[in-house]
Design a protein around this nucleic acid. Sequence first.
DNA 1: TGTATATTGTTAAAAATTTCACTATGCACC
DNA 2: GGTGCATAGTGAAATTTTTAACAATATACA
Lengths: 217, 217
Amino acid sequence: MHLQKYERIPRATIARLAVYVQELEVMEQQGIKVISSEKLAWSCGVNPSQIRKDLAYFGEFGVRGVGYYVYELREAIKQSLGMDRTWNVVMVGVGNLGRALLRHHLLRKRGFVIVAAFDCDPFKIGEEIAGIEVQCTSKLPQSTIDMGVEIGIITTPPERAQRAANYLIEGGIKGIVNFAPSRITAPENVVVEYVDFIHNLFSVAFNITQHQIKGLL
Amino acid sequence: MHLQKYERIPRATIARLAVYVQELEVMEQQGIKVISSEKLAWSCGVNPSQIRKDLAYFGEFGVRGVGYYVYELREAIKQSLGMDRTWNVVMVGVGNLGRALLRHHLLRKRGFVIVAAFDCDPFKIGEEIAGIEVQCTSKLPQSTIDMGVEIGIITTPPERAQRAANYLIEGGIKGIVNFAPSRITAPENVVVEYVDFIHNLFSVAFNITQHQIKGLL
DNA sequence: TGTATATTGTTAAAAATTTCACTATGCACC
DNA sequence: GGTGCATAGTGAAATTTTTAACAATATACA
């Protein structure tokens, strides 16, 4: 029997679990009912043990000798990750990226509902994007408190990211996803996550170079 | 003296080095000429030893008893990472996210020049975004070969990501950054990197929940 | 020129993560 | 019901990554 463990769960595990859900959904659409850790691992590009280990943090979801029931596993992971609820999100900074995210229906599909957007540019205030009216950033703290928002997305230019974060913190936000390429400081009880896809481009660029060097040896 | 090592460099190191560059640039703008690993670590949110270790993969860039010269270090890292050159990039899939990336001037600033954009939607073909005309995807392989493109960005819907990847591979691309939430398969010699910021939102959501659970105990 | 101080580069230890190997168990078929 | 096969769960081993500790060395100043 599985006992609830209070081990710290690796961040990488969380990221992988989200990938598993993604691939399980594809399989479900293809009508696949049962999947083994080996096959799932193959399509997620990881090791089968890794999958079993990752799942073991949360419980026992499979049937020995059989595999995992696709639907059940997907639901179990979603529940474990808190993917089975919706989260109210606000956005600070309505530039190109912000607009794209506001229009990104996958966010809502995944349970992240952007309930308000803020910008300090008077030309942008009042503009409506994907059904959301851009408001003045000064209104942010009160709004987030009123609407019970838990997550803030920062899509400002880097030099304004900290200020955006301060507003969010003042508004009692619990977590921040910062798309601006700059570090921010926040109190211990606020979860901060950084997203910078330029890093991924560098990673690819670097690996291309390495590949070529290795090829020469 | 530093001997060139042919150790495998952790992916995490590469990501951190990009962050160091980012923070060093901020410091340079503030007129800071010399920085210690401790202070840089503080502003990057990492451990000082980590910084020294990361740098040690590439050489010796500091002065004992003094620290690192900001400008020199930045340049050294950029060179080590291949950030000192430009890379020609093509994009497949011109949706919301694609458009945002096309207009994202930070990409160009960082040396990633989007030289062409492709989509299979006839309504999008011919449209011009940020000075780039959207072309039919069927033209992709020949174009990338002709233009010597090395990196491809996939911003299609997930179900079309593999097809996009196939075109890119056919076009002799060396690396792919896949923004679509689906795994793709590519030959060994093609570097693939996945970007999915929804994972980051999940990570924040999960950590918020965990925080709250921990708070209750 | 010597000494104190600061801080890097580097080696060793610790911690975290991944992979392996094996045990347990469920199902299908005889 | 028993036997063989497939595959999950799990503890241990291997590997990787991070952190700590310290030796080397540059600067400042007596």
